[in-house]
Design a protein around this nucleic acid. Structure first.
Lengths: 344, 344
DNA sequence: GCGTGGGGTTGAAATGTTTCAGCCGTCGAT
DNA sequence: ATCGACGGCTGAAACATTTCAACCCCACGC
């Protein structure tokens, strides 16, 4: 088989003895072409190994059959789960999905967005470094559907999908208090991250409402939301005088919680007796930890799916109105906060 | 700002009072156009908010500025690390990267590949469900560069990049024997996976060479390479009569190892004293486990980078020859096999 | 027999970019 | 003065597809 340039509709048409338009019809409106011709055309396509040229279709159509997700941190499985949800939805609409990763850097984010505009993607889903960034608004102003995932766009200029982070903070700390803890640490940062602020806020709210002493809720800031930072927070925690040391920690995500867990176990602490730990996100590795991690679950795939739904609505429905979808987080209690008799 | 269709080179040309060709030159060969005109054109582009239409470029060029990676299992971070390596390389060549996920199903893999052909991607990197699959060969025959990642294509019809899995099995088991173990389990499966076979093979080789009793190397097959299967393997292990029970396990990947670790710790075993564990891949969560996991490291990002290099070579270099790149795996010893005094 | 309707097919236009041969002046060399 | 070269710019062709008005022919109704 000669491997020249790949055959086009023209070649197929010639080989089947019909016109271009007919070949196109066979692909796009098979019902209008007679069975006999259709069959002939299909055979020709198979023989020549015809493959549609997507760029030509796109050029004609003015838009590509592609969505894009710009994730915030490739190293956090949470975002991959969101991406998986998006991909399912994309698949259902027969669209491709571009997955990009800004790695938390605004510069890379901008580069990706630029490329995506050139690709004329149908819509962009993004967990942005900064939801208020100029370049996001610019894109939306161009008429490209943009949906913020796992953050809430302040301006209302976009749709967004997120969980109620304040509530998430509340149920985490409420759970710890229910388990009898009266000194709790909240670990996360930097505070420039909206989620961190809101989860902390929720924690403080419920702490006050339950009548706990304000000083007994300690906020331990971190520089990032990584396993390593979780470990280092554990060391800081261990350094506190015993009488003031929290007996439980609420971490703003699971990576921090896993790091803290590792450090605590390494230091010989019994979990949850000497230190109880709650994470956030409920990534798969939370359940897989040596001491399975209690975590505030976000419906990760659902988040992605819903976001994709919104972006598609905006792309296709002229009457679309921006909306802010909020999901309800849910506490998944496991051994890192609840001691259970174990079979030995 | 009116949001009609986005402006084209034609609009820019009109606005700047030059011809299409000149606008194109400003973008592609700025040095051939006089500074004055260039400046005028650039201003016009900025004013109109001109964004290149990538599909038109592609149509003209006959190929897209895009690579693709079809990963095997989205739930295994290993593949995301490989993808990250590919993305860096793509970035260096100013290419976009499509990331797809076959989730271990041949059908999805085929759907993805089909789409990628339609997109006229420059090259395809893939960790295939089955390296011998017909559809892979078909694509290569069409002249599209294909590189197999983390598997070796039997036929030599493609380039491939992988680590020496036999060697990986050898160093894992060698390490365990060095640590004084004389009964070892190898956990992994199904055996249809090439890696599993080769890692097991390496384990058996070195076991024999070191003069250990063949019966003391137990192979525990699993149905998948997941955390859950790791746990269940742990239960089977615990069910063996004490005198025959292995004191160490070599798992064919880290997910299995983490599952096993969790099960063992839950059952009250001390690690590594009562059970030593070695994983494979050295994903980030291996180091983050409660008992940090000894693992056979694959240079994950390097794998991706090298694969991208090969695919680009095949795409651009007429004198390209297929090659099978093999990396050397490396043992990273941690607490799951080596007891160290700990500071309490 | 004539008009009508409609199923099936055609041919050309349109999409946005790049490339390339060619054109127009100007400047330097002969 | 003429030629050549060259910098700077133009205009048209080419890429593969989709769409749409137009067309042909046949059957059917009057």
């Amino acid at each position: 088989m000669a491997i020249g340039r790949s055959p086009s509709v023209k070649d197929v048409a010639a080989s089947a003895g019909v016109s271009l338009g007919t070949v196109s019809n066979v692909m796009n409106r098979p019902e209008v072409v007679s069975p006999a011709t259709r069959e002939r055309v299909e055979r020709a396509m198979a023989e020549l190994g015809f493959v549609r040229n997507e760029s030509a279709r796109q050029l004609r159509a003015g838009t590509s059959r592609t969505l894009a997700y710009v994730m915030l941190e490739g190293s956090n499985p949470f975002f991959h789960d969101v991406a998986a949800g998006i991909e399912m939805a994309a698949e259902d609409s027969d669209l491709s999905l571009f997955i990009c990763n800004s790695n938390g850097r605004s510069g890379r984010e901008e580069v990706h967005l630029d490329r995506l505009m050139q690709q004329r993607v149908q819509g962009i889903l993004i967990t942005p470094v900064d939801p208020g960034a100029r370049h996001l608004a610019d894109i939306a102003r161009r008429g490209i559907p943009v949906v913020i995932v796992d953050r809430v766009g302040e301006s209302g200029a976009f749709c967004s999908v997120a969980v109620d982070d304040v509530l998430g903070g509340r149920i985490a700390v409420e759970h710890l208090v229910e388990q009898g803890h009266s000194r709790v640490a909240v670990i996360g940062g930097p505070e420039s991250i909206g989620q961190v602020r809101e989860r902390l806020e929720g924690a403080r709210q419920v702490w006050a409402e339950l009548g706990m002493k304000p000083d007994d809720l300690t906020y331990l800031p971190t520089a990032e939301m990584t396993v390593a930072e979780g470990r280092s927070a554990g060391e800081r925690l261990a350094g506190l005088p015993a009488r003031r040391r929290p007996t439980a920690a609420f971490c703003a995500n699971d990576l921090l919680a896993l790091g803290l867990l590792q450090q605590a176990i390494g230091a010989g602490l019994r979990i949850p007796e000497e230190l109880a730990i709650v994470g956030f996100d409920d990534i798969e590795f939370a359940a897989a930890a040596a001491v399975p991690l209690t975590s505030v679950r976000q419906p990760r795939q659902e988040l992605g799916r819903a976001a994709a739904g919104l972006v598609l609505d905006e792309a296709t429905n002229p009457a679309h109105e921006h909306q802010q979808l909020t999901f309800v987080p849910e506490l998944v209690a496991r051994a890192s906060t609840v001691a259970r008799p174990r079979a030995y």
